[in-house]
Amino acid sequence: MNELEKDMLPQAVMITIYVLSRQYHVPAGSTILTALEYAGFKLKKGVGCREGFCGACASLYRLQGDYKLHGGLGCATVVQPEMQIVQLPYTPAPKAIYHLEELEPVPEVFTQLYPELYRCLSCNTCTKICPQDLQVMDYIQAAVRGDLEQAADLSFDCIQCGLCSARCPAEITQFNVALLARRLVGKYLAKKGKYVEDRIKEVEASKFTAGYQELQDLSPEDLKKRYFERELNNLIY
């Protein structure tokens, strides 16, 4: 490659970001996670599926000229010039211990297990920070009035990133309340799908045993190949 050819290679545009208040130059278009790695951070915690599903890489950031504190997933948020970033992969949170079998799907479960729920001020701060764009206040308020189904419904896409609970002036652990609501609805209130029972019968009748065996016998290389070639659109649930 001569000098001229080198010059013609596409150059990554670099931008300046701040991580824990230190300046770094990273390629524009990176996600927060790839920018951190580019900057030399070795991420052992605060990183998970890298696909926006697991909620492990919650991050807080501010943008230039904007007073608002934003929340986002490190794997799904693209860095912007002058962005100030910190990861908040975990928010200490109380988690009630219970046996679902011993609970009833009644409003009183919240009074017993998460009494702080009733401190909610309806300020909507949780909704402002949620990287999943959930109506967090609305699901908490549904729980407050004992509407388990609505609480479960509105919180369905919660990935337990914890940001809402870090911001809540009433110190509520929204995502654990929501988890309890969804568990109760799933166990006691939701309609039972016949297709689940049918599928269980198929599993018990060994319908899939041969298929699984075939996959298990594949070499890691072939398995990877199969994984990436699978037809997502044809998956039948």
Partner: peptide, 22 residues
């Protein structure tokens, strides 16, 4: 179609607007 708890008790503190958001 969407609503939250009103707070149940009117807050008398003159400087705490947070209680009037609900």
């Amino acid at each position: 179609p969407r609503w939250n708890c009103c707070g149940a008790v009117f807050s008398l503190s003159s400087d705490d607007l947070m209680r009037h958001i609900a």
